[in-house]
């Protein structure tokens, strides 16, 4: 009952969630694209004394190399934002395509696709990423986005497929068939819109995972050392023992930035979902 009353609590609340999410993401987008021009110091500038505490001159102090952490954080926003959004987008597109196809068509198409998915799921993703990374000509931003985007869609494809399986049993699919719609039309025009909640739910986690995967790859030392991201800042803070200096200003802000960024997505996703549900009535089928 609680759930019902919550969803009936009015569209205004949901809009607030969406708006808050959007505001957070807009803030990061601004930081990512305008920030570098406003950043107080050039990227990878090593001209300052190391381990300075936060001050007016260095809002978040300096790191072990004498780089201004605040400036690095702004440059890092650009990288992490792009990785999150683009790798997330690649993942979503592939995940939806594969999941939808495998769920809609039966027999061998489905079997073959899911066989590949299950096979790839067997190998640890991190190991696959390392192997793929060693294939690419260089590990710049593009490669990182590709590596993460191309290897993260497996779980998403699975969940989209199972949802599609249940959707295609529903009456509206049969009705569309009777009207004479082609398979492609049914998939895109009829089923896809109904998958929206599950896609939205996945999108949130996929974006978060992309940002985290980039951090993980940096931590393992695979990536472009010249590029700055929230992950590389954290990885450096670890390998240079920031905790020995009690340099919280180096460790905490990037962690908070990632968390806030992902929280923006969660808010946006949940807000949108709830609106969607409110529109469609109590009919909700997401997992």
């Amino acid at each position: 009952m609680k759930a019902k009353s919550a969803s009936a609590a009015g569209a205004s609340g949901h809009n607030a969630k969406q708006l808050a999410g959007l505001a957070i993401l807009a803030f990061f987008a601004a930081a990512a694209f305008i920030g570098p021009r406003l950043a107080p110091y050039p990227k990878n500038d090593i001209d300052f004394e190391a381990w300075l505490k936060p001050s007016m001159k260095h809002l978040l102090g300096t790191d072990s190399y004498g780089q201004d952490v605040f400036a690095q954080l702004i440059y890092g926003t650009h990288t992490s934002f792009l990785v999150g959004i683009l790798a997330g987008a690649i993942t979503t597109v592939i995940g939806v395509l594969v999941g939808l196809t495998a769920g809609f068509y039966r027999k061998w198409v489905s079997d073959a696709l899911m066989f590949v998915v299950d096979l790839l799921l067997i190998i640890p993703v991190m190991a696959l990423m390392i192997i793929l990374a060693s294939f690419l000509p260089s590990m710049g931003l593009t490669s990182i986005i590709l590596v993460i985007g191309l290897l993260s869609w497996l779980y998403m494809a699975r969940s989209i497929r199972s949802q599609t399986l249940s959707e295609r049993q529903r009456g509206y699919v049969e009705a569309a068939r009777v009207v004479g719609m082609s398979n492609a039309e049914i998939m895109i025009k009829e089923i896809l819109p109904n998958l929206f909640p599950i896609i939205a739910a996945n999108l949130v986690s996929v974006t978060t995972q992309a940002v985290l995967a980039e951090a993980g790859l940096s931590f393992l030392g695979i990536g472009d050392p010249r590029s700055v991201s929230w992950g590389t800042i954290l990885a450096l803070a670890h390998s240079n023992n920031a905790i020995m200096y009690d340099a919280w200003w180096w460790i905490v802000p990037p962690g908070l930035a990632i968390a806030l960024f992902c929280f923006g997505f969660v808010l946006l996703g949940n807000g949108t979902l709830e609106r969607y549900r409110a529109k469609r009535g109590a009919q909700q089928h997401f997992s």
Partner: peptide, 11 residues
């Protein structure tokens, strides 16, 4: 790869 000090120097 996996050598932060080396990478900083390379940068």
């Amino acid at each position: 790869a996996n050598a932060p000090a080396q990478n900083k120097e390379g940068t």
